[in-house]
């Protein structure tokens, strides 16, 4: 980024109240008020949002691909966390 470039913000939109926020994309903006406006103007032109989050891109933390194995693979064999692991002869759980 050059010194004069506005910082990058990540934009999350909520399609309808009650639904989770989803990553919509990014915008550049000098500060949070402008980030919110730019997010609104870029990512809700077709009624895609009833609410918005904007987050400075450099505040988002995620594991590196090298860490991914140790982060996520250990949960793959815990099949007893899933309801279909259990035998419940005859009983109705619906």
């Amino acid at each position: 980024m050059s010194a004069s470039e506005w910082p990058l913000w990540e934009v999350f939109t909520q399609r309808r109240a009650g639904l989770p926020f989803e990553h919509a994309g990014s915008v550049h903006a000098p500060d949070k008020e402008m980030a919110l406006q730019n997010a609104r103007d870029v990512y809700s032109r077709r009624g895609e949002a009833t609410c918005l989050w904007v987050v400075p891109a450099d505040c988002i933390v995620s594991p590196t691909p090298e860490e991914a194995g140790s982060f996520f693979d250990p949960s793959n064999d815990k099949i007893y966390r899933h309801p279909n692991f259990y035998k419940t002869p005859g009983a109705n759980f619906e």
């Binding site: 980024m1 050059s2 004069s4 470039e5 990058l8 990014s26 550049h28 870029v42 032109r45």
Partner: peptide, 20 residues
């Protein structure tokens, strides 16, 4: 303009700024 913006955002994930 929006489409340009989305794709520039994509290039930024490759470590090159929109300014560049």
């Amino acid at each position: 303009a929006g489409h340009g913006l989305y794709i520039y955002s994509g290039t930024e994930t490759l470590g090159i700024s929109r300014d560049q």
